[in-house]
């Protein structure tokens, strides 16, 4: 009876103690055995709630941005009229053919890809995808769009997976810088174009690049390619901007501007092989 009273009085302290024990248990490999059954039951609920949330969010954004949509609609109507006058149908077909051709040529033909939708972008610069171990996704798989690097899979559930973006503060990769004039679609020996090697570090808001050779001829706009053992291929990370060099230092630093805004991506490809 006395014990029960003590428990009632200090229940929040017992709760804290239990949570710490649970956390340490979570650091062991046994945590998977707890997470897996929960994942099978609750991931479908999470997926459907997120999808419902996504459609509500899209509608809300569309309603809030209605004036610009009307403006865009009117512009498009004018554009359609113009295109019709110019007999644009054939031109559109041709452009579509060209963009598809370009996409196919950009993707690495050796790999096997799984298409995935982004469910959630976290505050910590991680994304949750709607594909998991059931689709053959493994920890360490690279996530790409064409030849552009999006992130690495760091955790896998049966139905979902977690991807760490290069912006994440724990992300660091070895990279090489090549001039922006190099055409990556041509089959070239890239090593001969490398102007400097470096290391990129995620800083939350931006991606820093460090350890660029002080005598290297890197310029703003140069292409930063990922060449790291964690990622098997050579993938594009972004372009170099804001290069700074301190005369007292033996290296140059800068910032990598990603090819696209990660918050705007909807679909990605996981390289599963």
């Amino acid at each position: 009876m006395e014990d029960e009273k003590i428990f009632k009085k200090y229940s929040y302290l017992f709760c804290l103690l239990f949570s710490v024990i649970l956390f340490f248990f979570g650091q062991t490999s046994f945590s998977k055995s707890i997470k897996y059954p929960f994942s099978y039951i609750f991931n479908p609920i999470y997926l459907s709630a997120t999808q419902a949330g996504h459609s509500v969010k899209s509608w809300a954004e569309a309603l809030l941005d209605a004036s610009s949509y009307i403006q865009e609609y009117n512009t498009m109507r004018e554009e359609i009229v113009r295109l019709k006058i110019e007999n644009s149908e054939r031109l559109l077909d041709y452009e579509e053919y060209n963009s598809l051709k370009e996409h196919i040529s950009n993707a690495d033909k050796k790999g096997e890809y799984t298409e995935a939708k982004i469910l959630h972008l976290t505050n910590q610069n991680e994304i949750i995808l709607n594909r998991g171990a059931d689709s053959g996704v493994k920890k360490g798989d690279a996530v790409v769009i064409g030849r552009v690097f999006v992130g690495l899979v760091i955790d896998v559930n049966p139905k979902t997976s977690l991807v760490r973006l290069p912006l994440h503060t724990s992300s660091s990769y070895e990279v090489v810088v090549i001039p922006s004039t190099v055409n990556l679609n041509e089959k070239l020996h890239l090593d001969s174009f490398v102007v400097s090697k470096g290391v990129v570090l995620g800083k939350g808001e931006e991606i820093k690049i460090e350890n660029l050779g002080i005598n290297s001829s890197v310029n703003s706009g140069d292409i930063v390619l990922l060449k790291d053992e964690k990622v098997e291929d050579i993938l594009i990370l972004g372009s170099l901007v804001g290069i700074t060099s301190n005369p007292a230092s033996t290296q140059k630093n800068g910032v990598v501007e990603p090819i696209f805004d990660y918050s705007n991506i909807l679909t990605v490809f996981i390289k599963t092989k």
Partner: peptide, 27 residues
């Protein structure tokens, strides 16, 4: 406890993290 484990699972966080947050908030 159950709710924290569920959200640690679906959000891919370490087991017990949500529980620690809740326990500290309760304190």
């Amino acid at each position: 406890t159950l709710f924290s484990i569920v959200f640690d699972t679906v959000l891919h966080t370490s087991l017990g993290l949500h529980m620690i947050v809740i326990a500290l908030v309760l304190l």
